[in-house]
Design a protein around this nucleic acid. Structure first.
Length: 905
RNA sequence: GGGAGCAUAGCUCAGCUGGUUCAGAGCAUCUGCCUUACAAGCAGAGGGUCACAGGUUCGAACCCUGUUGCUCCCACCA
C-alpha cells in the first residue's frame, strides 16, 4: 500500500466529523460518571466565525475532548444569542436594501422578517464551528429566544419585579441615537476624542453690574483689569445651550460671589436663568462656571434635582434638535453644534475657542456618540443581588484564570450600579408590563393575568384597551441565565440540570467579564443558590503581528475557513494554541498555522515509517537466523527509556492541563512527539537495511512501538482530533466504535529516573560526535572510531551499540586511545577520543582547548570564591553547598583533562 | 484622574518558595546535508548587561524603592 508523503486533511476531516456524529460520540446523557460540562459562550446569531471564536472554541474543544478521554461524561452545550441590538440593526439594514423602512412595518411584520433572517443565517456560525472540529452535543443546541428560554427570561423578570428588585423610572440613561435605544453603562465605550472647547459669554441680566472674569485680578501678566457684564462658560457641546436652566459656580469661588442669586441670559434662546452655587463645581476647570443642562448631562441632572430646576429636553430620540430647543429644530446635533458656534460668533458671544481632547462615550454597537438622555426605563437593583457573586470569586469558590482579573471583577461588583434592562427595540423578549392607558401598570405574564391585576387598580379597565410595554429586554438579561436555561433548569429543576449544574469550565473573553460572566454568577446564586461554573478561563484577545486588534474595518483578520483549508483544522488549532499564553493577548501570525501543519505532517510520516515495517509474528529467540540483527535485547533500552520518558511527560502534561496552561501542554506534547519519539526513539528502533530491504522488526519492538504510537495519538487528540482519528484507524484494525475520541487518556506509569538520566548522557555523547562530523566535514555514512579514554564510573553497557545506530561510531577501545590523530571531547566525567584519518590542525585545536580551559578556570574560580565565603557555607542550605562542592570537583577534573590534552598535542 | 498588569534571544513566551548544567523553549537566522518516514525534512551552530538606577542578601531575572516605556480596566470634570 502506497501512503501519501504528505498528509491530506480535507477528506479526512469531513469523514471523521461525520463518523463521530453518526456514532453520537458528542452526545451526553446523564449517567453514573462524573460530568464535565462546558456551556459555549453563545455567539451572536448573525455572527460569522472570526479568529476570536477560533481561539475560544479550540480551547473549549481541547478541554472537552480531554475530559471525555479521562472518562468523564463530557457535555459541551452549543447555541446562539439573539443579540437584540446587533441583529435588529442587521435586519433593518437588510430591509432598507429591499426598500422597506422599519417605521412602515408593524411590530409583528418586523419580527416575521427577523425570524426569517434568523432561520436563514442563524446557523452559519455553528456550521463553521464543525469545520474546526468542535465536539459539541448538537442535540442540545439552544437559542436565547427559543420558546422555553423566552419564558425563563420573562418569568425571571416577573419574579425580580415581585421581589421589588426591578423598578420603572425616568432616569438619565446612555442613549444611542442611531439604534434609538437606551444602552447599559457597560455598552458605552469611552474614546479619546478631539473637540473644541467653546468659551461662551452669558450676559448678566442686570445691565448695571460689571463682573471681572480674569484670574489674578489686576495683578496678572496682562496688567489690565477688564470689566465685563458677562460671565464665561466653557462647553464642548454648544448645541445643548438651549437646554440650559442655570449657571452654576462653586459657593466659595471669590470671582463669582457677587453674582450669587443674579440672573444671566442664555444665548441663542435669550432666556434668563439664575446663577446658582453647588459644591459639585470644580473651581479649577474651565472658567469655574458650569452651564446647567439637566436633560443632557448626568451631573447637571443631579444639580437640577438639588435645586429644583426645570428640565428642558432639546433632543429627539434620533439626535436631532427637538421643538423645545426653539432654534435649529430638526437639525442633527452635530450640525446644530456648528450652527450654534456660527450664531454665537455672529452675536459676539464667543470669547475664545480651544482644541480640547477628552473621553467621549460611544455606543459599543453603533459607534454613535452616546447622549445622556432622560427617559423612562426599567432598572434592576444590583447591590444586594450581586453580593454572593462577589463572595464567590473572592473566596475562590469560582476561580478566575488568570487570577489577575479578580481585582477588576471585585471593583466592578463593589461599584455596580442599577442595570438598565429595557431597550427600545423589537427583537428580544418583550417586557411583560401592561398599561391601562390611565397611568396604571402591572407586571404579568399574560394579558389576562395583567387584566386581573389592573382591574384591582382601575375598575373601569377593559381587557382590549390594555397595552403591553413596547420595549424588549437587554440581551444580557437573557444570556445571564444561559447555564441554567440550556438545561431547562427553570422548567425542570429535577431534570438534566441536577446532573450538569454547576458546569465545570467557562471559556470566554475578558471583554465580557461584566456583561456576562459576573451576571451569570449573580443569576446562578439568585436562582440555583449555587455557582454556575467552577473555573472561568479568560482567553486573550487575538491581535495581528503589529498588536492591533483584529477587526473587519482594518481588514487584518484572516478568514478562518480559508486558514483551515490551507493548513488543515488540526494545523490551525495547533497554530492558535502555539501563540496563546494563558491569559495574555496573542499576536497571531499565519506562520503558527504553518508550524501546526508541519507538525501534523511529521506525525503522518512517523506513521508511514512504522507502517512500512515488516515484523515477525512471534518474538525471535536469540541467534535464530542470520537476518535477525534486530533483537529485543537491542531495542530494550530504547523501549525502556521511551516508556519512562512517556510516563514522566504524561505527568508533566497533566500538571500543565490542571493549571490551564494549555499552550505549554501543547508544547510539551509537541516535543515529546517530535524530539523524543521521532528523533530519538524511532531512530533507535528503526530497522537497518540489508540488500535494499529493511530487516523485519521483532514483534516485541513492533508491538511496543504501536502501543507508544497509540498513546501519542491519545495525547495529541485534544489538539489534533482529525489526524489522530485517521491514524488511530490506520495503525490497527479496529471495531466500529473503537475510536481515539473515546479512548482512555494514557496513564502515567512509574518512570525510571535512572534510565532517563543515563539517556541524557547518551544524547550528549551523540551530539558531540555529530558536532565533530559537522566540523570535520565527515559524512554520516563514514564510520568513525571512538575510544573511551577515562571515566570515573562505567558507562552503561548499551552505549556502544546505540552509538553505532545513531552516529555510526562504535566505541572500540576502553581506557586507551588511538595512535595518530584524535579529537577529544569530554562529557561530564567521561573523556572520549575520536580517531581521525585527516590531519589535525594543531594550532586551531590548541586555541580551542585554551578557550575551554580559560572558561573552566573562571568557572572554578567563581565556585571556589563562593565556597570560601564563610557566610555562604553557614547560611546556605546544605544541599546547595553540596552542589557547589560537586561543581568544584567536576570543574577541577575537567581542567586537569584539558591540560593533559594540551600537553599531548 | 484612579487602579491593575507587563518589560527575559530577531519574534512569541517559560523561568513555580531568591541558590542545580556561569539564563530555557518553540519559531526565525546561519552552516552542512535530497542519509530509502518526513526538504512541510535531517544534523549542527550562533544569538540575551533578564528595560534603567539604586537597595536588601553570602547570593537577585526573581524581594524592596524609584525612573522610563507599553498594555488593559475603571471614572459624569463641563
Amino acid at each position: 500500500m502506497e501512503i501519501s508523503k504528505t498528509y491530506n486533511p480535507a477528506e479526512v476531516e469531513d469523514k471523521w466529523y461525520a463518523y463521530w456524529m453518526a456514532h453520537d460520540f458528542f452526545k451526553s446523557v446523564p449517567d453514573e460518571r462524573e460530568p464535565y460540562t462546558i456551556v459555549i459562550p453563545p455567539p451572536n446569531v448573525t455572527g460569522v466565525l472570526h479568529m476570536g471564536h477560533m481561539l475560544n472554541n479550540t480551547i473549549q474543544d481541547v478541554l472537552i475532548r480531554r475530559a471525555r478521554m479521562l472518562g468523564k461524561n463530557a457535555c459541551w452545550v452549543p447555541g446562539t444569542d439573539h443579540a437584540s441590538i446587533a441583529t435588529e440593526a442587521k435586519v433593518v439594514a437588510m430591509l432598507r436594501e429591499r426598500g422597506i423602512k422599519k417605521s412602515d412595518l408593524s411590530r409583528e411584520e418586523f419580527l416575521k422578517y427577523a425570524w426569517e433572517w434568523k432561520e436563514k443565517y442563524g446557523g452559519i456560525i455553528l456550521e463553521q464551528l464543525k469545520k474546526l472540529g468542535a465536539s459539541c452535543d448538537w442535540s442540545r443546541t439552544r437559542f436565547t429566544m427559543d420558546a422555553g428560554y423566552y419564558d425563563d427570561v420573562i418569568n425571571v423578570f416577573i419574579d425580580l419585579y415581585n421581589k421589588g428588585l426591578i423598578y420603572r423610572g425616568k432616569r438619565m440613561v446612555n442613549w444611542d441615537v442611531v439604534a434609538r435605544t437606551a444602552v447599559s453603562d457597560e455598552e458605552v465605550i469611552f474614546k479619546d476624542t478631539r473637540s473644541r472647547m467653546v468659551y461662551v459669554k452669558y450676559l448678566v441680566d442686570n445691565g448695571q453690574l460689571t463682573i471681572d472674569n480674569e484670574k489674578g485680578q489686576g495683578t496678572g501678566d496682562k496688567g489690565i483689569t477688564q470689566s465685563k457684564n458677562y460671565i464665561v462658560v466653557a462647553t464642548v457641546r454648544p448645541e445643548t445651550i438651549m437646554g440650559d436652566v442655570a449657571v452654576a459656580v462653586h459657593p466659595d469661588d471669590e470671582r463669582y460671589k457677587h453674582l450669587h442669586g443674579k440672573n444671566v441670559i442664555v444665548p441663542l434662546v435669550n432666556r434668563a436663568v439664575p446663577v446658582i452655587t453647588d459644591e459639585a463645581i470644580d473651581k479649577e476647570f474651565g472658567t469655574g462656571c458650569l452651564k446647567v443642562t439637566p436633560a443632557h448631562d448626568t451631573v447637571d441632572y443631579e444639580i437640577g434635582l438639588r435645586h429644583g430646576l426645570p428640565v428642558i429636553d432639546t433632543l429627539n430620540e434620533d439626535g436631532t434638535i427637538s421643538e423645545a430647543g426653539k432654534v435649529f429644530v430638526g437639525m442633527d446635533r452635530f450640525a446644530a453644534r456648528k450652527q450654534a458656534i456660527k450664531k454665537l460668533e455672529e452675536d459676539g458671544l464667543i470669547e475664545k475657542m480651544e482644541d480640547y481632547s477628552h473621553q467621549v462615550g460611544h455606543s459599543e454597537r453603533t459607534d454613535a456618540v452616546i447622549e445622556p438622555r432622560l427617559s423612562m426605563q426599567w432598572f434592576l437593583k444590583m447591590r444586594d443581588l450581586s453580593k454572593p457573586a462577589l463572595d464567590a470569586v473572592v473566596s475562590g469558590e469560582v476561580k478566575l484564570i488568570p487570577n489577575k482579573f479578580i481585582n477588576t471583577y471585585k471593583y466592578w461588583i463593589e461599584n455596580v450600579r442599577d442595570w438598565c434592562l429595557s431597550r427600545q427595540l423589537w427583537w428580544g423578549q418583550q417586557i411583560p408590563a401592561w398599561y391601562d392607558g390611565e397611568g396604571n401598570f402591572v407586571v404579568a405574564k399574560t394579558r389576562e393575568a395583567a387584566f386581573e391585576k389592573l382591574r384591582m387598580q382601575n375598575a373601569e379597565c377593559r381587557i382590549e384597551n390594555i397595552k403591553q410595554d413596547e420595549d424588549v429586554l437587554d440581551t444580557w438579561a437573557s444570556s445571564w441565565l444561559w447555564p441554567i436555561s440550556v438545561f431547562d433548569g427553570f422548567a425542570k429543576p429535577d431534570g438534566d440540570i441536577k446532573y450538569y449544574y454547576p458546569t465545570s469550565d467557562l471559556i470566554t473573553a475578558p471583554e465580557i467579564l461584566f456583561f456576562w460572566v459576573a451576571r451569570m454568577i449573580i443569576a446562578g446564586y439568585a436562582y440555583k443558590k449555587e455557582k454556575p461554573f467552577t473555573n472561568v478561563y479568560l482567553t486573550g484577545i487575538v491581535r495581528d503581528k503589529q498588536g492591533r486588534k483584529m477587526s473587519k474595518q482594518l481588514g487584518n483578520s484572516p478568514e478562518p475557513l480559508e486558514l483551515i483549508s490551507k493548513y488543515s483544522a488540526d494545523g490551525v488549532r495547533v497554530g492558535m494554541l502555539l501563540c496563546s499564553p494563558a491569559g495574555n493577548d496573542l499576536l497571531f501570525d499565519e506562520s503558527y498555522c504553518e508550524q501546526g501543519r508541519n507538525f501534523a505532517n511529521k506525525v503522518w510520516n512517523a506513521f508511514r515509517l512504522v507502517k512500512g515495517w515488516t515484523h515477525h509474528p512471534q518474538p525471535l529467540s536469540k541467534g535464530e537466523g542470520s537476518r535477525t540483527d534486530v533483537t529485543p535485547e537491542k531495542n530494550q533500552v530504547a523501549i525502556d527509556w521511551f516508556s519512562s520518558k512517556l510516563s514522566s511527560e504524561i505527568e508533566n502534561i497533566n500538571d500543565l492541563y490542571s493549571k490551564y496552561r494549555i499552550s505549554e501542554a501543547l508544547m510539551a506534547t509537541y516535543k515529546l512527539v517530535w524530539d523524543d519519539f521521532c528523533a530519538w526513539y524511532l531512530e533507535m528502533v528503526k530497522p537497518d537495511f540489508v540488500d535494499g530491504q529493511p530487516l523485519p522488526v521483532d514483534s516485541y519492538t513492533y508491538n511496543s512501538t504501536i502501543e507508544f504510537f497509540e498513546d501519542i495519538l491519545k495525547l495529541l487528540h485534544p489538539f489534533m482530533p482529525f489526524i489522530t482519528e485517521e491514524l488511530w484507524h490506520l495503525i490497527r484494525e479496529r471495531d466500529e466504535k473503537d475510536c481515539v475520541i473515546n479512548a482512555e487518556w494514557p496513564e502515567a506509569l512509574p518512570s525510571d529516573k535512572n534510565i532517563i538520566e543515563q539517556f541524557e548522557l547518551f544524547k550528549e555523547v551523540v551530539t558531540n560526535i555529530r558536532n565533530i562530523r559537522q566540523q570535520k566535514n565527515i559524512s554520516p555514512k563514514t564510520p568513525m572510531k571512538l575510544a573511551l579514554v577515562k571515566n570515573k564510573e562505567p558507562l552503561p553497557e548499551w552505549f556502544p551499540r546505540l552509538l553505532v545506530k545513531l552516529c555510526n561510531v562504535p566505541i572500540l577501545i576502553f581506557g586507551n586511545t588511538y595512535p595518530g590523530n584524535v579529537l577529544p571531547f569530554i562529557v561530564r566525567q567521561y573523556e572520549f577520543h575520536v580517531s581521525l584519518d585527516t590531519t589535525l590542525d594543531i594550532a586551531a585545536e590548541k586555541a580551542r582547548l585554551m578557550l575551554e580551559l580559560e572558561y573552566n578556570k573562571g568557572f572554578l574560580e567563581s565556585v571556589q570564591k563562593k565556597l570560601s565565603n564563610e557566610r555562604f557555607v553557614q547560611n546556605a542550605k546544605p544541599e546547595v553547598v553540596e552542589i557547589e562542592k560537586k561543581k568544584q570537583s567536576d570543574a577541577e577534573a575537567k581542567i586537569k583533562a584539558i591540560e593533559e590534552q594540551l600537553g599531548s598535542l
